[in-house]
Design a protein around this nucleic acid. Structure first.
Lengths: 100, 100
DNA sequence: ATAAAAGTTCGAAAAAAATCGAAATAGATC
DNA sequence: GATCTATTTCGATTTTTTTCGAACTTTTAT
């Protein structure tokens, strides 16, 4: 119960940072195969080590998936988790017919 | 551009804390008129001053609205903002027809 | 084998967020 | 107008997050 809440809070916290949100938006818009960490670094303009830390946070939250391709690490959005997260926020919202 | 990103990151950060997420879920499920801060306190079980801080964070993020009724403060969900936030995450997600 | 390229991990410092008691405020009631 | 109730604001402390250079790992290319 609170397990699910904590998990979702962690995911939202992962998205609650400008750099990480920019990364998520980049992989949402990016190619299905994934985007190399280096390309993401160019887009957000921060040192590699900092970027890597943010990518780890998103990964641990299951918001992105990684796969190696040669020398590159390709990051892509985990759309399923993102959907689960959004759905959670709205669960039982219409009990009184007051919203959606 | 980055203005919108920062705003949305702030909203997600507001939701990225177990207590605040619990509060949001309570007001999503709660009555349309709003829920008194005291009731929320009972539900989350923390000191009033700490709760108040979290409520302020959610308020500043426009995720909840407050209205006084007698000496109660009624908090309710701002569904419109919540929707805007969720929509933002998925914007341009289907460029490659790869998800939804 | 060596070296180069792409990223990650480590470690320490700086910045931001969370916590809670005590004091203050606003409205209702006597 | 004094007091009670609900809640916020203040202030100080603790905890967590963010940051980034330096060193390390993994894969490719020479």
């Amino acid at each position: 119960m609170t397990k699910q809440l904590d998990r979702n809070a962690a995911r939202l916290a992962a998205l609650g940072h400008p750099v990480r949100l920019a990364i998520l938006r980049a992989v949402v818009k990016g190619p299905a195969e994934g985007t190399p960490a280096g390309d993401l670094q160019t887009q957000v303009g921060i040192p590699a080590s900092t970027l890597s830390h943010h990518l780890a946070t998103l990964s641990e939250a299951d918001l992105v998936k990684v796969e190696r391709s040669g020398n590159f690490l390709l990051y892509r959005c985990d759309f399923k988790s993102l959907k689960t997260l959004c759905d959670y926020l709205w669960e039982d919202c219409c009990s009184g017919g007051k919203c959606c």
